[in-house]
Design a protein around this nucleic acid. Structure first.
Lengths: 244, 244
DNA sequence: GATCAAACAATTGTCGTACAGATATCATAC
DNA sequence: GTATGATATCTGTACGACAATTGTTTGATC
């Protein structure tokens, strides 16, 4: 009675209870069975539904927290809530991963800055094409703050980060924006060691040039302005790294 | 007796035992106190050292496993081992995150392909400059397989992935390679729906052109060849997506 | 009746312990 | 010498209990 076309007996790899629970909840979230922001059942209830113990449920939930899919809070109104997942969370996670790999020496700042250039130059070009008023307002406000600030303002690096990430958003490509934010943030430490007054002023001027090009929609000009700005800044920060 | 320069009393936010354990172990790994591949003490021993219970240690270790810093295995010779962290692990994590964000609709394939183009075109250029024999051998082997294969070979997409990621590695930029692998992999599902024979043959031809340019070190040629290849492939795959 | 403080309740966080499952090593039998 | 089985040791799972956290409700007080 052996069917020649019969499927070969292929035992399915046994899966641990903890993994099954994690997979089922993850799938339920991804398929929208739990809406974003919705509260999952309490741990004891989940344990009962799955027929496992509470520690097992907790381990599964912990993995989902690490993955950024849910968040937990204690207290009577607490519980596990489905996170609103955006490219921002990807950016956050990416930044953390890159930081650890940097610290472990499996990556150097030169590689980071090269990629940064590949991303930010096209971003400026796209931003000039797709810009919207809200982004222009934000960029103008940032540049204004940079002009007003003094050399000792500890917020200088955050202005720079805001300028570049806003251009990322203005490009209209959410993935590009997330990558730029993450990569920019990871190059930060090397960058704001000792910003001299001269460097600060030139940076602001370059930012203004980029902003003008984006405002007037001149894509090529914006691209070139960003390229020379990055050439200036990155060469400068690499110089610092090398001279340590 | 109040010192005018005295630090304001800033209570340090209390941290949960679980977080303290996680932070300490993470820091010990990042500072090299545990070498890569080394085995951490057993859970019971860690619990004793930290003065907490074993479940608490387990939750901390679980978070580190999710972060990719360690791996665990049961059995007598098992335990928690420090992972060898490479840009490959970043690539893996990035791919997973992008896949979930894609499924949740906070990203579309068009954004993905744009970024892919930004990364792969410069990668080809760099690969032509920094190429090494090992990468050339790999690329030649892949292209050879692509020429030999038939239209129904289920491994076709994996050849394509291998070709493009190898170029990423050949660029000499490990972060770039990781990004390319992740982004390419996430665009995959859209791409290998119904690859017609015609498309398959043109793709292989374009791959050969790119490989020739890289072999001979013609950076501009390689860049242009990659650009037109991606224009062809991505427009084609986007067409499929749209026509669904 | 309004306001504020204290008790309450629900949920997660931590603990202790026990046992089951997995797996490399070692001893034993053939 | 090889294969089989016992063993030791680690992680995985379980159960039950208590502590910590925090929104809600209730009660006392003015």
């Amino acid at each position: 009675m052996t069917d020649p076309v019969a499927q070969k007996f292929r035992p399915q790899q046994v899966t641990r209870p903890r993994d099954q629970v994690e997979q089922q909840i993850r799938e339920a979230i991804l398929t929208g069975q739990f809406a974003q922001g919705e509260k999952l059942p309490a741990e004891t209830e989940l344990a009962q539904q799955f027929g496992v113990s509470r520690p097992t449920v907790r381990e599964a939930l912990g993995a989902l927290v690490s993955a950024g899919l849910i968040r937990k809070s204690p207290g009577v109104a607490g519980g596990s809530f489905v996170n609103v997942v955006t490219p921002d969370s990807l950016s956050q996670m990416l930044k953390e991963s890159m930081d650890t790999i940097l610290r472990l020496g499996a990556l150097d700042v030169g590689e980071l800055t090269s990629v940064r250039r590949m991303l930010e130059v096209p971003a400026a070009e796209w931003a000039a094409k797709n810009r919207q008023d809200s982004h222009l307002d934000t960029l103008q406000a940032i540049v204004q703050k940079q002009r007003d600030t003094t050399i000792n303002d500890p917020a200088i690096p955050s202005y720079d980060l805001a300028f570049h990430t806003t251009i990322g958003h203005a490009s209209g490509n959410r993935l590009l924006a997330a990558f730029i934010a993450a990569v920019h943030d990871s190059t930060h430490p090397a960058q704001y060691l000792e910003v001299t007054e001269e460097v600060g002023r030139r940076t602001v001027k370059q930012h203004m040039a980029i902003l003008r090009a984006i405002e007037s929609g001149e894509a090529e000009t914006a691209r070139d302005a960003m390229a020379s700005h990055l050439d200036y800044v990155l060469q400068y920060s690499l110089g610092i790294v090398r001279s340590e």
